[in-house]
């Protein structure tokens, strides 16, 4: 049984058919990436999995349980965490408070320990612990958003465009951290426009085009595929 299974999912925004029957799986311990152009439906897919959007039909099961009838705030304690598009850190709260919010569903005694682990991973956040998140740079906010998601000790971490708006050097840093997280055992579902970076870290990948999955394979296969090269890798 896969950790996450999405089956024939259809999502509409009003009359617009945004997701047209996609199916994919994420196995425990994998990094899976969904790549595709702007508007392909990548974020919509993640928002549907985390319960913020409701599909017209199809099924999503996480860790063996169907999640579609579960409100988003309850999914966190099932082990699902999302780093939202555009980071969405709480700009008027301090770094430490943001992390505390990430551990909202966890027992209070565990929080300090999780926070220490996040600070190990992101020493930069430790330095800025008391700072208001709105004053952090884009890269630091991305680290904070990732750290915040880790605070819930997720089984699956979904990342929505972590490279968005970051300088190339920061993008590499963020992807190094994603690799580290993966090595330490976190399963990752990564949504990216930056296909090159995403394919370089992914075990498996799916190409999403206007709401449909058009290609799938291992990260290496897709990185070598002519179609992908032409459409997404500038080759």
């Amino acid at each position: 049984m896969s950790l996450l299974e999405v089956n024939d999912l259809h999502v509409y925004y009003g009359a617009i058919h945004a997701i047209k029957g996609i199916s994919f799986k994420v196995e425990e311990g994998e990094i899976v990436t969904l790549i595709g152009a702007n508007g392909a439906g990548k974020s919509t897919t993640l928002k549907t999995i985390s319960g913020l959007l409701h599909p017209r039909s199809g099924s999503v099961s996480f860790d063996g349980k169907s999640t579609l009838s579960i409100p988003p705030h309850k999914l966190v304690s099932y082990g699902l965490a999302q780093v939202p598009e555009g980071r969405a850190v709480f700009l008027q709260m301090t770094v430490a408070e943001n992390l505390e919010m990430g551990a909202y569903t966890r027992p209070p005694l565990e929080v300090a320990d999780s926070m220490a682990k996040v600070y190990d991973l992101f020493p930069r956040l430790k330095e800025r612990e008391k700072q208001i998140a709105g004053t952090l740079s884009g890269g630091e906010q991305q680290m904070l958003a990732m750290g915040r998601a880790l605070m819930s000790r997720p089984k699956l971490m979904m990342l929505d465009e972590p490279s968005m708006g970051l300088a190339p050097i920061l993008v590499e840093q963020i992807f190094d951290i994603i690799k580290d997280l993966h090595r330490s055992g976190t399963t990752i579902l990564l949504v990216e426009q930056n296909a090159q970076m995403a394919l370089s870290v992914a075990d498996r990948a799916y190409v999403l085009e206007t709401g449909k999955i058009t290609l799938s394979g291992t990260g290496k296969e897709l990185a070598a595929s002519e179609e992908v090269k032409k459409a997404y890798l500038g080759g």
Partner: peptide
């Protein structure tokens, strides 16, 4: 600040 993000934290 952000209701959607708050929900993703597990806040009702």
């Amino acid at each position: 600040e952000n209701k959607a993000a708050a929900q993703l934290m597990g806040i009702n």
